[in-house]
Design a protein around this nucleic acid. Structure first.
Lengths: 131, 131
DNA sequence: CATTTACCTACCGTGTCAATAGGTTTTTCT
DNA sequence: AGAAAAACCTATTGACACGGTAGGTAAATG
């Protein structure tokens, strides 16, 4: 299940792309347009700044802006940053985890196949595809 | 993220299918083979009985068995029962929920498309495909 | 220097997850 | 009849994530 972090984060990215005029866009405007509490969006956007998806600027005239063109972002990279992982099962989410039952596990192949489908879907989808 | 309920539930179903000899299979045997606490499996299996996936029988010689042939079960129906929903976003998980932003939501079409992919994948996959 | 904005820290109630614990009932086998 | 084996039932637990809210600090601009 994609949480609000991923869903709202994606909507912020779309909002930034749609309202891009070269300068910074204040979070308040985004919050109003998206009908999401500005306070909560602060948490969301903070992650996006840390993850290098957007750039922030303080002070009057400040706000946020994209660091790349919308067609250079994949939905996958956005969701992965916000959700931590995009994997559907715990055993595949952590790349370092080495399951002792992996040889005999009858479900692992299916989870792997499914994971690939999910991965492909979201990494082929560009932010620009959502505008 | 598929929780242990879904993952373990599926493994129990596979175990029941593989070890089917016509009679009931005690949970203890399943727990031993699958290396999962029997106590915890009780919770899992209870849901499966309530959902009509398996049949239980008390007393000596009791245990659990499938009610259908493995090829008649879809992985989708098993996961949906165990997880409550298989949808990737909250707005699609509850069929009765009517989002006020659905007309203008730029992400909804993508979630719907993705949901269909997930749904199709798991409902086409049969329990017998995992044996 | 006032205003606007991002940025930071802390907190909170609720719920789910992944179990564990201990007891009761049902059924069969001897 | 009685022991054993099994499902079945109720309760509890600790940890953590979710979805926020609150209030303050720092930075930039006009």
């Amino acid at each position: 299940m994609i949480s609000t972090k991923g869903r709202y984060g994606l909507r912020v990215m779309i909002d930034l792309a749609k309202n891009d005029n070269g300068s910074y866009i204040p979070l308040k405007d985004i919050a109003d347009r998206q009908e999401i509490s500005k306070k909560y969006l602060e948490i969301i956007v903070k992650k996006m700044v840390e993850g290098g998806l957007v750039k922030g600027s303080s002070g009057k005239g400040g706000g946020y802006k994209l660091v790349k063109k919308p067609e250079k972002y994949t939905v996958g990279e956005i969701l992965t940053l916000m959700e931590g992982t995009i994997s559907s099962v715990a055993c595949l989410a952590d790349k370092d985890y080495d399951c002792p039952r992996k040889k005999k596990c009858e479900t692992l192949p299916m989870w792997k196949e499914f994971d690939k489908i999910v991965h492909d879907y979201f990494y082929k989808k560009k932010l620009s595809d959502l505008l």
